[in-house]
Design a binder for these strands. Structure first.
Lengths: 153, 153
DNA sequence: GCGTATTTTATTGCAGGCAATTATATTGCA
DNA sequence: TGCAATATAATTGCCTGCAATAAAATACGC
């Protein structure tokens, strides 16, 4: 039995799963980003952290984690690598000694200029209009937020 | 400078990046799947491999890799873990000794029945109509394929 | 003000991902 | 046939992710 494709199996077929679409698209993005980010000396998650810091400097680890949906188990070693690369500084907050504030070094800040070329390369690789991408992004974010809402239950 | 939000910075803003939407949605999916897959004794990538095998058994590692966009560096240890869990068997092909064929054990095959509950739980968590999900999935797959096409250049 | 609960970060251990390399088998071509 | 090119897995090393736990600081309740 179960030799021929059966309608009952449709929900389990790989190509019918939106999760796999998202999973494989994330890896495809990563592969497109890699050569671009190699030029900046960053991995993709490190690039995300830099994006956060370029928007607002001197941020506690927790805030970065909330924006990126990552915890300290991921961020602590990643931030130490960024510090070793002289892109950020990690300093205990004086008001609240539990917090570690992440701030950009001059090199970290100036890397922003080099990074400006990245989004346009990605746009080109997407081979798609900006408005379509924005619409997709909004849909995916909405789905993500609904999924995250379920987790918190 | 660059204290106030600037229009020139828009392309670098985290919330404007579709890649981050996809990246964070993938992690959200993973977190929703985790408790469901714990009951099957699988991780999410292991579940993907099982989906492939439930569609077609006795598959070389390379074919699994092509379907999932993963290489042997990821699959070899993963498949060894599935073998240790008695869900698959790994055997060298006799026609072509380079290939390792992956086949389901009876336990691996029967796990499919338990897995049928998973997609409907995911659908519920997505809180979204099937037709909307299918439309999104198709868009994301199309984007993924365009990105992968660029990589091959 | 004291002791407990909570918050924040760090650490450990395990499972992906992937680049680079290696080992072995097969193919193809002179 | 013999040798180089190619194909397939496996291995190594590094960087995520995340659960579980620990450690330290702060907040809270009495």
């Amino acid at each position: 039995m179960a030799r021929k494709p059966s309608a009952a199996d449709a929900p389990l077929r790989l190509d019918n799963q939106i999760c796999f679409a998202v999973y494989s698209a994330a890896h495809a993005f990563n592969r497109v980003y890699k050569p671009l980010l190699d030029g900046l000396g960053l991995t993709y998650p490190q690039y995300l952290v830099m994006l956060v810091l370029w928007e607002r400097d001197d941020v506690p680890v927790k805030d970065i984690g909330e924006k990126l949906f990552l915890d300290s188990g991921t961020l602590t070693p990643l931030l130490k690598r960024l510090e070793a690369a002289h892109l950020v500084k990690r300093t205990r907050s004086r008001e609240d000694e539990r917090q570690v504030l992440i701030s950009l070094t001059p090199q970290g800040y100036s890397l922003k200029e080099k990074a400006r070329a990245v989004p346009q390369s990605i746009l080109a690789a997407s081979d798609c209009s900006v408005s379509e991408l924005v619409a997709m992004k909004d849909e995916i974010v909405a789905l993500r937020d609904r999924l995250n809402a379920v987790i918190g239950e």
